[in-house]
């Protein structure tokens, strides 16, 4: 079984995000970019499936600007076997919307015929949480989102999902789209031998136009603004004072 892992190049989670002066978005010029952390978890899970003998090949795919090949090299250094880059933008500030990404991925799936697509549940830049679901719908495949545990067994997979208030276990028919949640696993560090090998692994480049997918935005960003700064709190001396203050605020 082939496993396809879509990985997105996003602003590094350690970077303090700055809104552009004109409010049109977030400033990404000269900012450290990394693989979306949820996608890293998906790559790790795919490699573990391969190590467990349940997958034969792990293919990483990234859609966006040309520089996303750095992200793909990271996936290769972690242990993916080969990579596909779909160039769909030439400006880092141009985000490809989930539907366009899902359509491109559907084309890649048609080409590669993987038995499983393992993606991150969402990208930490826009927090859309939509691509995996849209892809499953376009393909007519089963889907299991927010995976906390994945157990692939022949023609089906048992997936424990993180849902509000607890865990839910579902059994899905393969092929399937599974999206990784935070606690699915702890991604490994790239090993030095794999870093050295990464460049020798195949990385194929295509464009969205090659695949015949229109990536023109359908959504309009009206405004981007910084979150309101939190006001300083107060210290209370006793439980009575706390209750009084809460009543004063009309909270209780």
């Amino acid at each position: 079984m082939k496993v396809l892992v879509p990985v997105k190049r996003v602003i590094d989670y350690n970077v303090k995000v700055r809104v552009k002066a004109d409010g049109s978005g977030v400033d990404l010029a000269n900012v450290k970019m990394s693989m979306n952390p949820f996608d890293e978890i998906a790559v790790e899970e795919a490699i573990r499936l391969k190590e467990a003998g349940k997958a034969d090949e792990v293919i990483a795919v990234s859609i966006g600007v040309k520089q996303a090949q750095e992200t793909l090299r990271t996936a290769l250094a972690m242990g993916a076997d080969r990579a596909i880059l779909i160039v769909a933008a030439d400006d880092v500030h141009q985000d490809i919307e989930p539907l366009a990404v899902a359509k491109i991925l559907a084309k890649v799936v048609a080409d590669e015929q993987p038995g499983l697509v393992l993606c991150g549940k969402q990208a930490i830049d826009n927090d859309m949480n939509a691509t995996g679901q849209m892809l499953a719908a376009l393909l007519g495949w089963s889907q299991a989102t927010f995976a906390n545990k994945v157990d692939v067994d022949g023609d089906h997979a048992v997936v424990t999902r993180e849902v509000d208030g607890g865990l839910q276990t579902v059994k899905v028919k393969m092929p399937a789209v599974i999206s990784a949640d935070l606690r699915l696993n702890e991604p490994r560090y790239a090993t030095l031998p794999n870093i050295m090998k990464a460049k020798k692994k195949p990385l194929v480049e295509q464009t969205a136009a090659d695949l015949g997918v229109d990536v023109a935005p359908r959504l309009t960003v009206v405004k981007t603004s910084e979150p309101a700064t939190r006001a300083a709190g107060i210290k209370v001396g006793s439980v009575d004072e706390l209750v009084a203050k809460l009543k004063e605020k009309g909270v209780v």
């Binding site: 990394s34 750095e70 090299r73 030095l192 870093i195 990464a198 460049k199």
Partner: peptide, 9 residues
């Protein structure tokens, strides 16, 4: 690219 990955790892 290898050096970049060594540094980031």
């Amino acid at each position: 690219e290898e050096q970049e990955m060594i540094v980031s790892t």
